[in-house]
Measured scan of single mutants.
Amino acid sequence: AFSSEQLARLKREFNENRYLTERRRQQLSSELGLNEAQIKIWFQNKRA
């Protein structure tokens, strides 16, 4: 489960760009304390 802070950040990123570069995913992973797979799957689900 994502914290409300993490979700807000993911939604902001998604609004700016529906697709993440690998580098951006790595940055978000480290900033949010999530693993890259969690972020990747969140974006895939959000696009679906």
Rank of each mutant, 00 (worst) to 15 (best):
A37R: 10
R24Q: 09
R47N: 13
E5L: 08
N35E: 14
E31R: 02
L20W: 04
T21V: 03
K46S: 13
R24I: 07
L20Q: 02
L32N: 01
R23M: 12
K40T: 15
I41P: 00
R25G: 11
N35D: 14
G33S: 06
L20F: 03
E22A: 15
E36D: 07
R18G: 07
E13L: 05
R9Y: 06
N45K: 11
Q38M: 13
R12D: 10
R25Q: 12
S3H: 03
R12P: 00
T21D: 11
Q27K: 10
N15T: 10
N35L: 10
R9S: 06
S3F: 03
R23V: 12
A8S: 08
K40P: 01
W42C: 03
F43T: 00
R23H: 13
E13N: 02
Y19A: 05
R9K: 07
E16R: 11
E36G: 07
E31W: 04
R24W: 03
L32T: 09
R9V: 10
G33T: 04
E31K: 04
E22P: 15
L10N: 00
L34R: 01
Q44L: 08
L7Y: 05
L20A: 04
R23L: 12
L7M: 07
I41D: 13
S30I: 14
R23F: 11
N17E: 04
L10W: 00
T21S: 12
Q26Y: 08
S29A: 15
E36A: 09
L10S: 00
L10R: 01
L28G: 00
L7E: 11
F43R: 00
R47D: 07
S3D: 06
F14K: 02
R23T: 14
F14V: 02
R18L: 03
R47S: 09
N17F: 06
I41L: 12
R12M: 11
A37G: 09
Q38R: 07
S29R: 03
R18V: 06
Q27F: 08
E31G: 02
Y19W: 11
L10I: 02
L28P: 00
Q6Y: 02
L7V: 08
A48E: 11
W42Q: 01
I39L: 07
N17C: 14
L7D: 05
